[in-house]
Structure formats: C-alpha cells, structure tokens
Design a protein around this nucleic acid. Structure first.
Length: 244
DNA sequence: GTTCTAGAAC
DNA sequence: GTTCTAGAAC
C-alpha cells in the first residue's frame, strides 16, 4: 500500500494486530498504534498514531469517539478543532505510547551498538500523509531512505518544521490560541534552508557530503560514549540520570 | 510520501 | 563526463 491515506487505513482498523503484519505494527493499545516508518530517515524511526474511534480515558471500553475523524487529519486540526479536553487526552496518550517506543529503541541501541543516543519525538508542521502521526526518530539520521534536503530539514529539531511533543503539550496546557497559532507557522519554505549539520552547524554542499559527515558524528559520539561506559560503568552522569 | 529524469552543478 | 538536485507524475 502506498497512497496518502495509508496511515488513516491503519488508524481505523478495529483489530490492528490481526490486520497488520509484525513488520508494520510495533505495538498498540485501545487509543494508539505504533508502526514502523515505511521509509525510515534514521536507524530507528517509528510513527505513533491516534486510533479512531478515539476512546475517552474515562471510558476506555466505549466505542464512542471523543473527536471526529477529520479532527485527526493533522496537528493543526487537532489543535484548532477539538475540545481542550479531547486534545489533552489524545496528545497525552500519544506521548505515553511514544515513551514506550523510546524504551524499546533504547533497548535495541544497547543491544546493537552498546550505547544509547538521543531520540527526537515530534510532529511535522505540514505533513504529507493524511492522519495525525508523531515521529519517534533517533538523532543519527543515518538511513538510505534519507535522500533529499527536504527529508533532512523536515526532521531538524531547530528549524520549526519539526514540532516537538514537549512544545505541543506546553501549548495545550497554556490553552492560548495566540501561542498556538504562532507556533503552527511552520512553512514549506523552511525545508529549503541551507544544508548544515544540526549538531555542529557545519555547512555542506550536498546531501551525500552531509551524510558522510553525519556518519562521522555518529562514530565519534559512539567512541566517546563507549569510553565513558568503560571508565564509569554507565553512559550518563548522575544528573542526567535524573532526567530519565 | 516515492520514483523518475532533465538539466544544473561541478 | 559524472554527480546531484528538484519538479512532474503518481
């Protein structure tokens, strides 16, 4: 399947685990699905989708939905069309599933590479696929499917096109329309921003050169992390541990 | 979102 | 001459 509606198809399945193969479905619960991104833009890249009908936290068994299907088109419609209570529940459930996915990714990182690296969790301001989806993506950005400047810039954590889940949760708490409107101003033109490394700001002439630089960044991070683990027995400092 | 490919960039 | 990008088609 490869239409723009594929995510919506997944999100409306009454029984995801019997309809989707394990190479597509990572996990699910009453309100959300976690799936493998079909064209991963990093070593680890998953999507978290709200299911429809979306059940209320107060009545998880009910088949009644707390929002309309069209309210789940994208981040903008979630933030502008749903009730405050509904969007709080939807984003809250998505964030919870994203945390579970992060845990699975960290386990895999330790198994495969022996160290853990950053994971970014956020939405695209202007998505190409219909149905709200939250990206959970490792910050190596090393993948054969990452081919264009657009791909790369759409996941830059600092550009405004990729909107972190933390920002979205803050807007919902503040419940301020002006903040929300300003925050959703991410435009397509951002994707034409110059190619620079989001870790060290170094500019690069084209995507292949950027990709070999990212490979170097990853190797170097790994070298440092493994050295620290060897020396201290753990990767993070005690103050960093408190954040997890 | 991807694939294909013409022509720009080098 | 080859590599790479970006717009059209899907």
């Amino acid at each position: 399947m490869s239409s723009a509606a594929v995510l919506r198809t997944y999100a409306t399945l009454p029984s995801p685990s019997t309809s989707l193969p394990p190479r597509v479905l990572l996990s699910h619960n009453a309100s959300t699905l976690a799936i493998f991104d079909a064209y991963p833009k990093a070593k680890y890249h998953f999507l978290v989708l709200p299911r429809y009908p979306f059940p209320s936290n107060n009545d998880p068994e009910s088949t009644r939905s707390i929002c309309r299907l069209s309210d789940l088109d994208d981040l903008r419609s979630l933030l502008t069309k749903t009730t405050r209570d509904a969007r709080e529940q939807i984003v809250g459930q998505m964030a919870e599933m994203a945390r579970e996915v992060e845990e699975m990714i960290r386990d895999e990182m330790v198994k495969s590479e022996g160290w853990e690296w950053r994971i970014d969790v956020g939405f695209h301001a202007i998505p190409s696929l219909k149905h709200l989806h939250l990206h959970v993506i490792s910050d190596d950005r090393l993948s054969p499917a990452l081919k264009t400047k657009k791909h790369y810039n759409s996941f830059r954590p600092d550009l405004g096109f990729f909107v972190s889940i933390a920002d979205v949760q803050r807007w919902i708490l503040d419940d301020d329309d002006t903040i929300r409107e300003r925050a959703l101003l991410g435009t397509h033109s951002l994707l034409a921003s110059p190619l620079t490394c989001f870790k060290c700001d170094e500019p690069h002439h084209n995507v292949p050169k950027l990709k070999s630089h990212l490979e170097k960044e990853f190797q170097e991070e790994g070298r440092k992390a493994l050295a620290r683990i060897k020396k201290t027995g753990r990767q993070r400092t005690s103050s960093e541990e408190d954040m997890f």
